[in-house]
Design a protein around this nucleic acid. Structure first.
Length: 334
DNA sequence: CCTCCACAGGAAGCCGGGGGAC
DNA sequence: GTCCCCCGGCTTCCTGTGGAGG
């Protein structure tokens, strides 16, 4: 049934991008000057998940690489590489400057200096999920380096900007902003049709079923493609030649919890205990959460450590905090 | 209104591990 | 090998905040 599994991956960048013409044009225009050796414009792409921010960026980078010989680019996922050291390391990796850098013994200062001394060809650094950066210092370091252009990607523009110091905030006031709206149902359907065409055998899924997936995905293309992939896999495991509605209904919740499940597996023992308590108890105050945790853990860590853990788990979208200070409660994310 | 308390999160320091320089 | 440096994980201490309750 599946003829090409790659195109059913959410990260796959198709040859033709549909429904993102305006965004592509604006981003392209912002980076265009680089191809003539002039400085481009720092760009911020913002909008909810699964609306094509990452995809359009990688599409543009591919295009630039085809047309410009002397150009470096690097894509950094700040969610994965969120410490200053990790981010700087990735950026230097994009210009082959990391051979002698070791995690344990190289000070972050050295990475910073090396970046600042960059004087090679134009270099485009994409910082995806930039609002997840531990410190925004790294943005300043890139900003002040000539010949490096930043493309920032974030869900909420405000999440990123509220954390910048005033100096950087005012300098980034004038950057090009591109807002991505959720896809409409029909747009999701045509994105799926494209993937179906390249990835599945003919007549395995009907248009009605694609619409069903589109509605369930609520404008998030990653969820939609994930559902399609899972439904196709379920059907082929049962040796069916077509995807039935039942497979789709089964795949929808699976696709939505897939990412979460992966993150739960990454938790340490102590974090896992906290997560289990939240799963069982539901909404709970920090004090009661710590008491439960202390009872269950063999060697419980301190309250401060619990707060670090909870912060981390919010970062992983496993935990949500409601309220501030005394009134705050924690819960698992739905 | 004021004081107390629970809580968040910053700052500093300790420790163990690992790599480089010698 | 030994010394030194750095990091991440962790603790301790501390300040700021806002609701509860006198």
């Amino acid at each position: 049934m599946i003829t090409d599994a790659r195109v059913l991956q959410t990260e796959f960048v198709p040859k033709d991008l549909v429904h993102r013409d305006n965004e592509l044009t604006t981003l392209s225009a912002a980076l265009k000057p680089l191809t003539n050796g002039e400085p481009g414009e720092t760009t911020l792409l913002h909008g909810p998940p699964g609306v094509g921010k990452t995809c359009t960026t990688q599409y543009i980078l591919n295009q630039l690489h085809e047309n410009v010989i002397d150009l470096n680019t690097q894509y950094v996922n700040c969610w994965k590489d969120h410490t200053q050291f990790q981010t700087l390391y990735r950026i230097l990796e994009g210009i082959d400057q990391t051979l002698d850098i070791h995690r344990q013994s190289t000070p972050t200062d050295k990475l910073r200096d090396r970046l600042h001394n960059y004087d090679g060809p134009p270099y485009i650094v994409v910082l995806d999920e930039a609002d997840q950066l531990e410190t925004t210092d790294v943005l300043y370091n890139i900003y002040r380096t000539p010949n490096i252009e930043m493309v920032l990607i974030a869900n909420q523009e405000a999440d990123l900007f509220s954390r910048l110091d005033t100096r950087l905030k005012s300098r980034l006031q004038t950057i090009t902003r591109i807002h991505y709206k959720p896809y409409r149902s029909g747009e999701i359907v045509s994105i799926l049709e494209d993937r179906v065409h390249w990835g599945l055998e003919p007549d395995t899924v009907t248009r009605d079923q694609l619409e069903r997936i589109a509605v369930a995905s609520k404008g998030d293309s990653r969820v939609a493609i994930g559902v399609l992939r899972r439904a196709a896999r379920l059907a082929s495991q049962d040796n069916e030649r077509a995807i039935s509605d039942e497979y789709i209904d089964e795949a929808v919740p699976e696709a939505k919890t897939e990412i979460k499940q992966k993150n739960v597996e990454k938790l340490t023992e102590d974090q896992r205990i906290l997560y289990d308590i939240l799963t069982e108890e539901g909404e709970i105050s920090a004090g009661r959460l710590y008491e439960s945790y202390r009872d269950r853990a063999d060697e419980p860590k301190t309250r401060r450590m619990m707060r670090y853990y909870l912060k981390k788990m919010q970062h992983y979208n496993l935990v949500v905090a409601n309220g501030e200070n005394r009134g705050r409660t924690y819960n698992t994310s739905s």
